[in-house]
């Protein structure tokens, strides 16, 4: 049964139907969780003992940074599945994730920079954390550029998957950069083995925003994947049927 489900999901036609039903629910959940997260983060959470109110940018910055790495892992995994099993849908998910991940990375870099100016006293430094995150942005841009440079989309997807898999080494480097080397960027607050060094009233909105960003990614990647599926399958019977009935 389990195997059967995956075989069905891998069929573009079935995926198109199911994802169409999922998207509205994911979008509604995203709006609700985001509103809750912003309310708790911007209204309910107390100011920080050192930074006052300016720490609140972390409710965007931290989830964006987590997502930048999460989306990359999803993209590389989907790429590997596409390479090994030659599943078209995995290729579609991989390339549909690339630009979303690139925007998350960009958001993390920009919000970090805006926070860095008043807190550190500089917009940017070349420390290990900031540099490896910038490399992540370049990896995403490289993936997008490479995909668009090759006309045959199935060949392009294979090339992109290899690039994404080579770049996956950057993910542990980003995560551990603050522990392996001296950096200006502070160490992990939540994702460490020790108890999180953040007060509960600030941790709750942070986790809500993390869920919100995940939901956003989930419904946007499905929307993008549906477009990509339609474009790739435009000569097949079911897509023509779909176009005629609408």
């Amino acid at each position: 049964m389990f195997n059967n489900f995956f075989h069905k999901m891998a069929s573009p036609k079935y995926f198109y139907r199911i994802s169409g039903r999922l998207i509205p629910w994911l979008a509604i959940a995203f709006v609700l969780v985001t509103l809750a997260g912003l309310y708790y983060g911007l209204v309910k959470a107390p100011p920080d003992y050192q930074q006052g109110d300016s720490y609140r940018i972390m409710f965007i910055h931290v989830p964006a940074a987590w997502m930048s790495m999460f989306v990359y892992v999803v993209m590389a995994t989907a790429g590997a599945i596409g390479l090994i099993w030659r599943i078209k849908l995995a290729e579609v998910v991989a390339i549909s994730s690339a630009s979303i991940g690139a925007w998350f990375t960009f958001l993390a870099l920009v919000t970090g920079s805006i926070w860095g100016k008043p807190m550190w006293g500089t917009w940017w430094v070349w420390d290990a954390r900031l540099t490896s995150e910038l490399i992540l942005l370049f990896l995403y841009l490289g993936v997008i550029a490479l995909y668009n440079a090759i006309d045959d989309k199935r060949t392009a997807a294979r090339a992109v998957a290899i690039l994404a898999l080579v770049g996956v080494i950057n993910i542990p480097i980003i995560h551990y950069s603050v522990e392996w080397w001296n950096t200006l960027h502070q160490g992990p607050t939540v994702t460490k083995l020790d108890k999180p060094s953040i007060h509960l009233s600030m941790l709750i909105p942070l986790l809500l925003m993390a869920v919100s960003f995940k939901l956003y990614y989930a419904f946007v990647v499905l929307m993008r994947a549906r477009c990509e599926v339609l474009e790739r399958e435009r000569h097949t019977g079911w897509v023509r049927e779909l176009a005629e009935t609408k």
Binding site: D48, Y49, Q50, Q51, W120, G121, T122, L184, Q186, H199
Partner: peptide, 18 residues
């Protein structure tokens, strides 16, 4: 020629810090 502040990973309300 330049001094930057390094923030730590602790976040808490002022009352808790006190």
């Amino acid at each position: 020629s330049e001094v930057l502040a390094k923030h730590d990973e602790n976040y808490m309300p002022p009352e808790v810090a006190d």
